[in-house]
Write a protein that binds this DNA or RNA. Structure first.
Length: 654
RNA sequence: GGCGAGAUAGCUCAGUUGGCUAGAGCACACGGUUCAUACCCGUGGUGUCGAGGGUUCGAAUCCCCCUCUCGCUACCA
């Protein structure tokens, strides 16, 4: 019988730095699904890898004083190391710097160009020559440059674009007729309402502003922009060739059964990627699942907050399988999950150590104590046994149903309900009481046999999620490996087998205060930074450089100190504040997008830097006569720029 | 501003097409037990099911309105 294929991918990780536990979650989730599919008998191909091009990497490498290639070699290696540490069973680790990938991307680009789907054009919209900036129609103010107020002319800078609109109708049709295509389903509406139905913009697929990318071979100076490069990994990795020389592996595996990605890149995978595939006349992936994020404490993990958790450190504290268990179990299907040290310890103790570890341990020690380790089914059954068996045998189907819907966390919960049932069975049968009664030895043996058998079934189901633990349990019981098919039968454990004499503790209980003390020792800044987010010395930001300007350009701008005398939130907007700013003897109204960082109350009384000769514009229907200047970090946090000494409102800044 | 999702026990959440005293896990308390990693088993909730109104014999579940939260998106001079 030929096995059915199953092709699963993760997003490829961007090699700009070490991935934190939130990034690591995705590969573990994919691994659990891949392992489960294998256990079900599918011929699984599981691909992951790294996305290694782009300006950010070019800059980081320059900073580090090494070549981009050296930089990505290091980071890609580090990422692969973490994937391996997490015991993930990927079949292929693709890198976008792999020669065959690069070559194929060039061919794909050329083919799309030849087909007319990619065309050479210019940035859409308007160009302001003095400002050397591009704007879309919607950004213009009264048809003029929003920065300097002068007329704009049609775009000039050349770039390659992909004709997204050409395939939009087909994609809408596909999404409507394949409700399972975008998961969770709520994401489908977002894509439809925000992008597809309003009309798709053509996508710029080349760049000239940096070099670290795959060159467009027929037009040097252009490199293929990230999404066409990155997304195609799913087909180049299994041997796609757009000239019809695709490998057997490709023909077998494509289309992918599941693209597992983060919810932040759903748009690229459910709009641009399908359209690229249509352009290549390839079938679309069967499903794209945008998983939620794993958050640390009260917010998204970020280096500047100093609350980043890394997989390798967690593994040091808790072990690989505990970390796998945690990320898989704590992540709901649609909402973001939360990870903290406290939660990790709590779960480890109550689920892994108490429910599971202790169950295995007590079962083995009773077998040793009462029968020298020999587990025998003496057939002394009682009604309560049927209840246990029925329950245990019902679990595989329940796990199956959950996994089918990618409800991995729920599947694990089902497995643990089996272990809990076993603990209850021990209380129901009270083996220690049977042991005291000479006439009940067969009954005692049967009870222990039922327990060992149940644990074997549970351990088998655990394999996708915690493969090492499964192995350890079966080894301690001297039991053989089973298939999911085997789990339909109760009693496959060979009667008369001797279990291990000295059961190893599967998961040691941890004391929260001790763990926290150790954590505090290693991360002394964690508690302090939560109180007052201080500037990190090494925290720098690189932004895209603007073209050089002349002193003449600079002189055109007039900056002055402004004092905020009143401020209120703009009702119709989520981000805008409307301030009355005293500049010299006049008071101006200025609207700014700083609500996320400042409340109206705290704005009042501040002296800030204002660009005063900016052409007034209407924002959310309110007139704004100038611009209050702010510094912005990578997370979008804003800080007003103010004179270092007290200066009168209206003082010129030059 | 547009579109969408949500508001249920101290915490995290389940509640299918409206139907018997609204559930689970964690935490907490008490009881039982001792094979085991001070573990396991059992018992325990007067919860305004966000507020208000409506449909119905009956609504957490359907309709209207309000408040708040979240996601995507636009704006963010």
């Amino acid at each position: 019988m030929e096995k059915q294929k199953y092709y699963i991918t993760t997003a490829i990780a961007y090699t700009s730095g070490k991935p934190h536990i939130g990034n690591t979650y995705e590969i573990v989730l994919a691994d659990a699904i891949a392992r489960y599919k294998r256990q079900q008998g599918y011929d699984v191909f599981f691909q992951t890898g790294t996305d290694e091009h782009g300006q950010k990497i070019e800059l980081k490498a320059a900073e580090a004083g090494i070549t981009p290639k050296e930089f990505v070699d290091n980071v890609s290696g580090e990422i692969k190391g973490i994937w391996d540490l997490m015991n993930t069973s990927y079949d292929k680790f693709i890198r976008t710097t792999d020669a065959d990938h690069e070559k194929q991307v060039q061919k794909i680009f050329k083919k799309m160009y030849a087909k007319g789907d990619i065309y050479k054009g210019h940035y859409e919209g308007m160009y302001c020559t003095p400002c050397e900036s591009f704007f879309t129609e919607s950004q213009l103010v009264d048809g003029k440059c929003p920065d300097c107020g002068r007329p704009c002319v049609p775009a000039k800078e050349e770039a390659y674009f992909f004709k997204m609109s050409k395939y939009a109708d087909r994609l809408i049709e596909h999404i409507n007729t394949h409700p399972e295509f975008i998961q969770p389903e709520s994401r489908k509406n977002e894509m439809m309402n925000n992008f597809l139905l309003p009309g798709l913009q053509d996508l710029c697929v080349s760049r000239t502003s940096f070099k670290w990318g795959i060159p467009v071979d027929f037009d040097p100076g252009h490199v293929v922009y990230v999404w066409l490069d990155a997304l195609t990994n799913y087909i180049t990795g299994i041997g796609y060739d757009c000239d019809g020389e695709s490998t057997e592996q490709f023909r077998k595996n494509w289309p992918a059964d599941l693209h597992l990605i983060g919810k932040d890149i759903i748009r690229f995978h459910t709009i641009y990627w399908p359209i690229f595939l249509m352009s290549l006349d390839l079938p679309l992936p069967k499903q794209v699942f945008g998983h939620p994020w794993l958050l640390q404490g009260d917010g998204k993990m970020s280096k500047s907050k100093g609350n980043v958790l890394y997989a390798d450190e967690l593994v040091e504290f808790f072990g690989v399988d505990a970390v796998r268990y945690f990320v898989l179990h704590e992540m709901p299907f649609e909402n973001d999950g939360v990870i903290t040290w406290e939660l990790m310890v709590e779960r480890l103790n109550s689920e892994l150590a108490n429910t599971l570890g202790n169950l295995v341990n007590r079962t083995i020690s009773m077998s040793n104590k009462y029968f020298g380790g020999v587990v025998e089914n003496k057939g002394a059954a009682e009604p309560v046994d049927d209840d246990l068996k029925e329950f245990v045998l019902s679990i595989p189907a329940k796990v199956d149903a959950k996994m089918d819907k990618l409800r991995v966390a729920d599947a694990i919960t089902e497995v643990f309900s089996l272990f809990k049932r076993c603990n209850k069975y021990i209380d129901e049968t009270m083996p220690w009481a049977l042991a005291k009664d000479e006439t009940r030895q067969d009954r005692l043996a049967t009870v222990l046999y039922n327990l060992v058998e149940s644990i074997c079934i549970g351990a088998t189901l655990l394999e996708s999620f915690m493969p090492e633990t499964t192995e350890k349990i079966l080894a301690q019981l001297h039991a053989g490996k089973r298939t999911l098919e085997d789990l339909k039968t109760f009693g496959l454990y060979e009667s008369g087998t001797k279990v291990t004499e000295a059961p190893e503790i599967l998961f040691a209980r941890l004391k929260l205060d001790e763990v926290m003390a150790k954590v505090a020792e290693r991360h002394p800044q964690v508690e302090e930074t939560q109180e007052q987010p201080e500037e990190e010395k090494e925290n720098v930001i690189d932004i895209e450089a603007k073209p050089e300007i002349t002193f003449e350009d600079f002189e055109k701008m007039q900056f002055q100190v402004g004092e905020i005398i009143a401020c209120e939130a703009v009702k119709k907007s989520r981000k805008l504040l409307c301030s009355q700013v005293k500049i010299g003897s006049q008071v101006r109204q200025i609207v700014s997008g700083i609500k996320s960082s400042y409340s109206p109350e705290e704005m009042v009384g501040k002296k800030v830097m204002v660009l005063t000769n900016l052409k007034p514009a209407k924002l959310a229907g309110i007139l704004s006569e100038g611009m209050i200047l702010c510094a912005e970090d990578a997370d979008g946090n804003l800080a007003l720029v103010a004179p270092e000494k007290d200066m009168p409102a209206g003082a010129e800044i030059c």
